[in-house]
């Protein structure tokens, strides 16, 4: 089984790797590129722990084949902060105690970023439905929703 050469852009940087034809993007990120921030909770697209943004669209990286990343732009949790300055979503997750074990957090942050990129002023209901693909078993979502709403408000403020 020969491997496929993949050239892609991850968090703004050009990246090349070799992938088995059946390799998922999640496995390529974790095993080939050592970007272990994206997590595998189910491998079937049900939990959202592997959420990344592919050409501006939120996807479960466990449901994307690695060769599909060819020529595209991938955003992962490792690229969310601006250098050592946390993204407002990351900062608000910390301030609101919106994580307990933290395993779902990278996926939830990427899903939240995709939401706020598309809708800077979501209602609570919109946040809840947008994040319905990201399971969190620790928090009951309460503080996550508050953190996302608060980050949205801060990002709107920054734009003014």
């Amino acid at each position: 089984m020969s491997k496929t050469h993949v050239s892609t852009t991850i968090n703004g940087d050009p990246v090349e790797f070799l992938a088995d034809p059946g390799m998922t993007l999640l496995d390529a990120l974790r095993d080939e590129l050592e970007l272990t921030g994206s997590k595998e909770g189910c491998g079937s697209g049900d939990c959202g722990a592997c959420s990344v943004i592919l050409d501006g669209r939120l996807v479960c990286s466990c449901l994307v084949l690695a060769p599909e990343a060819e020529g595209r732009r991938v955003e992962t949790i490792e690229g969310l902060a601006n250098g050592s300055r946390l993204h407002p979503l990351q900062q608000k997750f910390l301030e609101h105690a919106a994580l307990q074990c933290g395993f779902c957090t990278p996926g939830l942050l990427m899903a939240s970023k995709a939401l706020l990129d598309a809708n800077p002023d979501p209602t609570e209901t919109e946040v809840r439905y947008w994040l319905a693909g990201n399971l969190c078993r620790c928090t009951g979502y309460d503080k996550i929703i508050r953190a996302v709403m608060d980050a949205a408000a801060e990002l709107r403020q920054e734009r003014v």
Binding site: T36, K39, T76
Partner: peptide, 10 residues
């Protein structure tokens, strides 16, 4: 934990 650096089991 918000930057993906925390190392879990896998």
């Amino acid at each position: 934990k918000v930057t993906g650096r925390a190392a879990y089991g896998a």
